[in-house]
Structures are given as structure tokens and as C-alpha cells.
């Protein structure tokens, strides 16, 4: 299963929100949809779910026009919301019924899901009597209640303690291994790196970079080198004398010396110049940018 958006354009009144968004999410893999607040993530998600239609462009599933109504989509909105005054079981069954499940199937799914989330004891309680973290779990249950083929999670980890985060991680892994399409939106980059093979960064209504995290990192300039040494001071002094012309910036942090080179190509010269001091050196490697750095780099300019 491949879900694609092709050149989505959308404006509200005079405000153009999406200016040609194309992205692709595959079953059995999680896609990280990243972007700053107001970049167009929610609008893209809503178009996928057919809350409104794009001004131009289309959504495709396996190259066929995608009709959201005919598929089960689980959505965990960033702005959490259920009925605060209603019984949890009743709400879950309601959302399952809205998705088209039969009454008994809805109850069965709700029961199983609550069990999986260790929430069975709360089934008869009102939502507003639960702690924030537990409400969050119920929200997740509402997302997954209809056993959706496509799951869209917006900041799923916010407000969860480490134990609950573990439970959620297991659930997401299960979804991925069951071949579901998972679109994952978060500002917590560690979670994105943990679950997503692919990312798409949206900025100012356009996808500014997309592809596998591995490739994106590879494609980034490889001009930052880290040297692990038991005598960073000595090495630093030495490099300042003989390699001043190729080094842009250098700073030591404990055993780690980070050197930013003017050009990628100067790595060899740096490496060979260190041979005399090899006795002090434990490691020498290219420091790839973190996802956070990549995100900032691509979204700093504008929203």
C-alpha cells in the first residue's frame, strides 16, 4: 500500500496554505511529517482525510484516487479531544460505530484495546475523572478503535510518562509490522528517528526535503569531524598550527574535539596530518547532522 499526495494546493481566502505538497507513505513503514507550527501539516492531513478538498492536486492510494470514506483511518489529532463528561466505553464504541463497525465488533475492539493499554478498569469511568496521561491513552484507543489501515499520529507522545511511552512505542511498532501506513508528526526528533525510515519536512506550504533519513543525512555536507582523544588540548594546539587554513571552527568538549572544516575535501589532509599523534587518538569520524539540525536548517528561513 502506498499513499501519495500529488501537488496539493490549498488556500483559505487570500491565505495560501499549501503550495504544492507531494509526499508518499508506504505500508509497513512510518513516515515522519515534520514542520514548524503553521507550516501546513494539519491542512495536508485534513486533505488526506477528506475533511476538505484541495484547490488542486490529488491524493492517491496505490496510484488510484483515494476515497477517505471507503477506508478506515485512525487519527490522533494534536489538539486532543473527546467527550469529557461521557463514559469511556460509550465514547469508544461510538467512534467505532461511526467508522462503520457493528455494535458487537465495536465493543469487542474497545475491550481488547483497553486491555492492551492497561486501561480496562477505567472502561466505565467518565473521561474527565482520568489523569492527563490516561486521557491520552484513551485518545489513542479512540484512534485505533476501528483497526485502521492508515494511522495518522500527531504528537502521540506528548504528556506520557516513560512507562506509558513504552506501551505506545510497542503499539506503534505493532502497527508498522502489521503493514499499516503510519504518518507520524512530532517535534520530538528522537521519536521520529526511532520509528521513521522516511521523513518529509514541510515549510511554507511546500515540502523542502523528503526521503529516507539515512539518505538525507548522507546528502548533507560532511565537513564536521569529531576526534576522540585523551589529550584534546595537545591535538587542538597542534592542528591550529599546521591546519589553520582548512579549519573553520574547532572546540573541545571533554574527550571530544569537534572540527568544522571549510570544505568536505579537506578531511584527508586533516586525517593524514594526525598520524603523528595517533597514539593519543581513539577515534576519528565524520559527524553527521542530527535530525534536529536538519530540521532547523530547512525550516529556519520562513514558515
Amino acid at each position: 500500500m502506498i499513499l501519495q499526495t500529488a501537488n496539493l494546493v490549498k488556500s483559505f481566502g487570500d491565505k495560501s496554505v499549501l503550495k504544492g505538497v507531494s509526499l508518499q507513505a508506504q505500508g509497513g513503514k512510518a513516515l515522519g511529517l515534520l514542520g514548524r507550527n503553521g507550516a501546513g501539516k494539519t491542512t495536508t492531513i485534513r486533505i488526506i482525510m477528506n475533511v476538505f478538498s484541495p484547490d488542486s492536486g490529488e491524493v492517491l492510494l496505490d496510484c488510484e484516487p483515494f476515497e477517505a470514506q471507503k477506508h478506515k483511518i485512525g487519527y490522533l489529532p494534536e489538539e486532543r479531544g473527546l467527550y469529557p463528561k461521557k463514559e469511556i466505553m460509550a465514547q469508544l464504541v461510538y467512534f467505532a460505530r461511526l467508522a462503520g463497525l457493528s455494535g458487537s465488533q465495536a465493543k469487542e475492539n474497545a475491550r481488547k484495546l483497553l486491555e492492551k493499554l492497561q486501561m480496562t478498569e477505567y472502561a466505565g469511568k467518565r473521561l474527565d475523572t482520568l489523569s492527563k496521561g490516561n486521557q491520552q491513552k484513551i485518545q489513542l484507543a479512540a484512534t485505533l478503535i476501528a483497526d485502521p489501515e492508515i494511522v495518522i499520529l500527531d504528537e502521540p507522545f506528548s504528556g506520557l510518562d516513560p512507562v506509558n511511552a513504552m506501551i505506545l512505542k510497542d503499539l506503534i511498532r505493532e502497527l508498522i509490522s502489521n503493514g499499516r501506513i503510519v504518518i507520524f508528526s512530532s517535534h520530538q526528533m528522537n521519536y521520529i528517528e526511532e520509528f521513521c525510515d522516511e521523513i518529509a519536512i514541510i515549510n511554507g506550504g511546500k515540502i523542502v526535503v523528503s526521503g529516507s533519513i539515512r539518505d538525507i543525512k548522507r546528502r548533507s555536507p560532511r565537513n564536521v569531524v569529531e576526534i576522540i582523544s585523551n589529550n584534546t588540548e595537545k591535538i587542538s594546539d597542534y592542528l591550529k598550527i599546521i591546519n589553520a587554513d582548512i579549519i573553520g571552527d574547532m572546540y573541545a568538549d571533554g574527550d571530544k574535539l569537534r572540527v568544522t572544516l571549510e570544505h568536505d575535501g579537506d578531511k584527508d589532509r586533516l586525517f593524514s596530518s594526525l598520524s603523528e599523534y595517533s597514539e593519543y587518538i581513539d577515534a576519528f569520524y565524520v559527524k553527521e547532522p542530527t535530525l534536529n539540525e536538519i530540521f532547523v536548517k530547512y525550516t529556519e528561513a520562513s514558515v
Partner: peptide, 8 residues
């Protein structure tokens, strides 16, 4: 914000 879920 139950609407967020309802409209979808």
C-alpha cells in the same frame, strides 16, 4: 476538540 475526531 472532539470535533477534530468527529469530522474525520
Amino acid at each position: 476538540r472532539a470535533m477534530e475526531l468527529l469530522i474525520t
